[in-house]
Structures are given as structure tokens and as C-alpha cells.
Design a protein around this nucleic acid. Structure first.
Lengths: 235, 235
DNA sequence: CGCTGTCAGATCGTACATTATCTGTCAATT
DNA sequence: AATTGACAGATAATGTACGATCTGACAGCG
């Protein structure tokens, strides 16, 4: 009998992010650990002892062990045999590597979007961008949320779900990092500029320049973050 | 105290692939399940019952559960809550998606290699290619091994370990698929051609054309496989 | 024909056993 | 006296066993 896939089987990008966890207490251990790693509550290279985590999250050890294995598969956790798990450190190299992959992926996603973008899509993009301009980086969290909205509007409908998952995973990692390094004033202006340029290219249905703009956008952000990380290391 | 990373902590591409498992019986459940999925011994969408797998591999259930979770993290296995795990089907869409990502990644890896390639590297590439020409697709397994060697010679030293892991993972999936669809004669000639063109571009230290050639190479293989899959589906 | 209760089978969580690694002490050697 | 090596206890990872809970299917009933 042919198997009919189910909604919750796919590793989907969540429709709405749950930011505050206290409201819903029914989240899985996997999500909790993952979130704690991304938030930095579990530091780089920190040992992840199943007994400690089990106590922390109020479960027994088995769910923790399985969660850690899943996170290992996703690359967030490193194992060594008979010596347990550690938080994968997100160092400059790793961030650079991820950004360089994004420089490949995002233009790819973008240029397809240019082909299918309706006037309404463009209007929405502009509306989001207006709001970004309005808050003007005052509130980094709000900015981050809007920026995510901006990119998801372009990417979410892409047929390449695998590339989309990859993008989303990368984005979550990078968001966690950039939380610690707020954008400098100069870089902010560049970002606004690039978004506006991007919208223009989409309006013109010019996939090539759109791809070029987004590549520069991502590459710029990457270099910016890596430099910050490097600077803060030499304190 | 600063943590000094350990060799076996990293998810590294293995130095030498172990093809026959009977020799070493000490492989982990994770590897066994993964291999069985890639070899097709566990079919697409097949239910993965922990008790069955535990019996099959001669362990208790917990190692199986953890292995499945890791495979879930890597995307080989899909879970639905309280309903267990299934083998992720590798359908045409998925293969297409992976190939399209490879069209981005491989040129990226290649063009860096062009910059660092020594004369000896080029000689080795040519040696491998000569051997490929020699066996001339008679033995698909041997061809596959040589082709892997060819590409690894170019990619293995790349600084972007993340991209390299991604490439390797994709390659393993695609190898598993293409085992079922041997190359047609026409496509074979193209492949040989493209490899030779690539070598020429590397000799000229021309990263741009090297990237273009490899993009065409990967894209061509992708279309070829997808068409085969589509055809075999309509039997 | 549809609804509902029951039951088998499997997942998921908990508890326990075993095995490996880490740590600190102490004796032996230089 | 300082360093090294071995041993023992503690600690934690890995493997096994079991019970609770959920799902899916089917028979009985309205």
C-alpha cells in the first residue's frame, strides 16, 4: 500500500516561533536542549551529562539521550565514544563556513522567487521593509523577526525543501551568534540599502541582479559578524 | 580550562570506506541502519520498529532508538509522534533538490581547488582519469570508487569543512540511488569529456571555467538520474 | 451504516546493570 | 624533593529490562 505522508513527519520550518517557553510546558527535550544551546545557556564545548540534563528538564535519561543523538545528527552536539556529548563550539571558522554556504544558497532561492513574485508579494516586502526602517535597529529582536519575515516571504514557497531546510538551520545558528554582536551603525545602512536594491531588482524581474545583491548582502553580513567575533576574542 | 578537541569527535569523512561489513563486526547500530537504508535493504517508507531492528542487529532496543534519532537528525529517517520511524523515501524531487544544491556547492569547492592545485595534483587527477577511461564503465562499482577519488582529491583539503560534509553526505545518497540506474552510453561519453575539460581548466588555473564545467557536470548527472527515476516509475 | 469499546502491538518513559573513563592518593624511582 | 606510574574509588556513559501510554483495527451494538 502506498504510504501517504503526514504533516508532522516532515522537518518543517515552524509557522510561528514560540519565543517564550514558559507558556507551553509541553515542549520536547530536544527542543529545550537545542534552544539552550542556541541561546548560549549551554556554552560552547560544555559537557552535556545526561543525568544533569535529565534533572534540569525533569525527565529521565532516555529522552535526553535520544535528544542528544538527534542533535548530533544535526551537528549541534559532538560525541566521543564512552565520553559523552559536548556542545559544538560555533567559532569564527564555522560561522564563516556557514556564511559562505549561504552566499551560494540565498541567491539560488532568491532568483527563483523573482520569477514567481506577484505584485502583492512585492508590496508585502516593501511593507516589511518600511517597518524595518521605522524601528531602525532600536530593538534588535524586533529587527531580527522582521528580517526573518522578509526572507521567508521570498523563500518559503521554493520547491527545493532541502535547500530551504538548510537555509533555515543556518539562519537559526547565525541568529544565535549575531545576538551577541549587534550591528554597527555603518553596517545597518548597508543592510537597508541592500534590501531596497533587492526590492528594485525584483520589481524589474531581474533575477541576475537580485541574486548579485543578495549575495553581497549575505557576504557582507558574514564578514561583519566574523570580524566582530575575531575582535571580541582579542580582549 | 580550554577544551582541546579530539579526533574522533568530528564527523569526518572516513579515510577509507569499509565496503564489506562482515570483516569488522564491531560497527555501530547507527552505521548498520544507515548502510541498510542507503543500500535499499530497508525500503522507502518502510516502518522501522525498534524491536525488529534490535533483533536484526543483535542488540537491545536502546541503541536502536538512539541510532534512529541520529538518523532523524541527518534526515534519513522520519518520525511521527507515538508512531515511530520510517525510512525517508528518496524520490525524484528529493534527488533533484540535492543535485541542485550540488550544482552550487561543487563549483564552489572546485574553484578554490584550482587556486591551490599543484602540478602533482593535476598529474594525479589525470592518472585517476586514465584509469576511469581504462575500465570504461565496465564495472560500475570500480567506476564509482574512482570517480569519488577524483572528486575527493579536489575537495578534501578545502577549508570549509561544513560544505565538505554536506557534499559528502549528498554524494553518499546519490551513490545509493545511482547504483540502481547505471549510466547510459551517451551520458558516459559526456562524463569523460567533462572530466577532461575540467582538468584542462585546472591546468590553465582558470577557476571560472572549471566552475562552469563542474556545474554542467553535476547538473547533467542530476538530470540524467532524475529522468531514469521518472522512467522507471512509469513501468 | 456509523459509532464505540476492547485489545493487540508498538512507542515512549523509567529504573537498573554493566562497563568504561576520570581523579586523586600513594608508593617507587630518579 | 619532584616526577612518574599504578591502583582504587567515584562518576558517567552505554546496554538491558520492564511498565505506562498511545495508536490502529476490528468486533459488537445501536
Amino acid at each position: 500500500m502506498p504510504y501517504k505522508p503526514d504533516m508532522d513527519e516532515m522537518n518543517r520550518i515552524p509557522e510561528t516561533r514560540v519565543e517564550q517557553r514558559e507558556a507551553y510546558e509541553a515542549t520536547s527535550v530536544y527542543e529545550l536542549v537545542r534552544e539552550d544551546i542556541l541561546q548560549g545557556k549551554l556554552a560552547a564545548n560544555e559537557r552535556l551529562k545526561v543525568s544533569v540534563l535529565a534533572a534540569r528538564y525533569g525527565t529521565s535519561t532516555n529522552p535526553v539521550r535520544e535528544a542528544l543523538q538527534q542533535l548530533r545528527g544535526e551537528g549541534f552536539v559532538l560525541f566521543s565514544h564512552n565520553r559523552g556529548a559536548r556542545v559544538r563550539p560555533i567559532d569564527e571558522e564555522f560561522v564563516r563556513d556557514i556564511y559562505e554556504m549561504e552566499v551560494l544558497i540565498e541567491p539560488y532561492l532568491t532568483s527563483w522567487f523573482v520569477g514567481i513574485a506577484t505584485d502583492e508579494d512585492i508590496a508585502r516586502l516593501e511593507a516589511i521593509q518600511d517597518r524595518i526602517d521605522a524601528i531602525g535597529f532600536e530593538d534588535p529582536e524586533a529587527y531580527s523577526a522582521l528580517d526573518t519575515q522578509f526572507h521567508r516571504l521570498m523563500y518559503d514557497r521554493h520547491y527545493n525543501r532541502h535547500a530551504l531546510d538548510m537555509w533555515w538551520k543556518h539562519r537559526e545558528i547565525l541568529r544565535a551568534i549575531s545576538r551577541k554582536f549587534p550591528f554597527a551603525r555603518g553596517r545597518r545602512r548597508e543592510i537597508l540599502n541592500e534590501h531596497r536594491q533587492l526590492i528594485e531588482a525584483i520589481k524589474d524581474h531581474d533575477a541576475t541582479t537580485a541574486a548579485r545583491v543578495i549575495a553581497a548582502h549575505v557576504g557582507g553580513s558574514g564578514r561583519h559578524i566574523v570580524e566582530h567575533m575575531r575582535a571580541s576574542r582579542n580582549l
